[in-house]
């Protein structure tokens, strides 16, 4: 474990916490007769969270962590896997089933089809993998799918004119997590013998590049001290 990997995992964890915080705020705002301004913003506008992306992440973790009971790496790994599995499925549950959270979800804007991402990733995983076994193909599938799972969210952000702070932070933290993982791979490549994982690296690089555009607007909004807005 190096500092880049740890920092990457922590930003990933923070992104999940930001999302759970947002859901919690939406829940607790409802029913108040005089909502605070944050409640007002969250309840009156759509949440800006893409259910499609969240469902894809749940699928990513479900297929990647099949080894949770068979291969033991460390207590840290097992706990983190449980956290990511549990949080991704509960976020999906909240957006689909919780009556208040569901109301803040803008279904008409979030129109991306899962199918267009899942099928090519599955085919690619069947063709390009390190070992043709059930677990390994699904692990590879999860890498390919994770690389593109943010697309529905980025498209939704571009459509939603009003990006609230928490949604912006969420996407930023996810992007930071990917960038830190690249630093982790570079570090491991030079410090560990035989550390080569081409499939992980290339899909991870593609994933990080998808955030480039968002990062550009995120940092310029910080620099100019204005609210984050993506061009139409």
């Amino acid at each position: 474990m190096n500092i880049f990997r740890l920092a990457g995992d922590m930003t990933h964890l923070m992104s999940v916490l930001v999302l759970l915080l947002k859901i919690h705020t939406i829940k607790s705002c409802a029913g108040k007769s005089y909502p605070c301004s944050l409640c007002f913003i969250l309840l009156e506008s759509s949440s800006g969270i893409s259910l499609k992306t969240q469902e894809l992440y749940a699928l990513v973790f479900a297929t990647r962590y099949l080894d949770i009971f068979t291969d033991f790496i460390s207590v840290y790994n097992t706990i983190m896997k449980l956290i990511f599995l549990g949080s991704s499925f509960s976020i999906v549950w909240y957006i689909r089933r919780h009556k208040i959270v569901r109301r803040s979800y803008d279904k008409d804007q979030d129109t991306f089809r899962h199918f267009f991402l899942v099928l090519p990733c599955l085919l690619l995983a069947l063709i390009i993998n390190e070992k043709f076994t059930f677990k390994e193909v699904l692990w590879t599938f999860s890498l390919y799918l994770e690389a593109v799972a943010i697309l529905p969210q980025l498209i939704l952000l571009q459509r939603t004119r009003n990006i609230d702070n928490l949604t912006g932070q969420y996407v930023f933290l996810l992007g930071a997590y990917r960038a830190l993982y690249i630093l982790n791979w570079i570090y491991r490549y030079f410090t560990e013998p035989h550390y080569v994982h081409w499939i992980t690296w290339i899909s991870g690089l593609v994933q990080t590049l998808l955030y480039a555009d968002f990062f550009y607007y995120y940092f310029s909004s910080l620099k100019n001290n204005v609210k984050l807005k993506l061009p139409a």
Binding site: R5, D9, H12, D67, D71, I73, S74, N77, M80, K81, F84, E130, K131, E136, W139, Y181, N184, H194, V196, T200
Partner: peptide, 10 residues
């Protein structure tokens, strides 16, 4: 050389 498939990352 034989590549061992090890997944120790998340």
């Amino acid at each position: 050389p034989h590549i061992t498939v090890e997944h120790d990352e998340l």
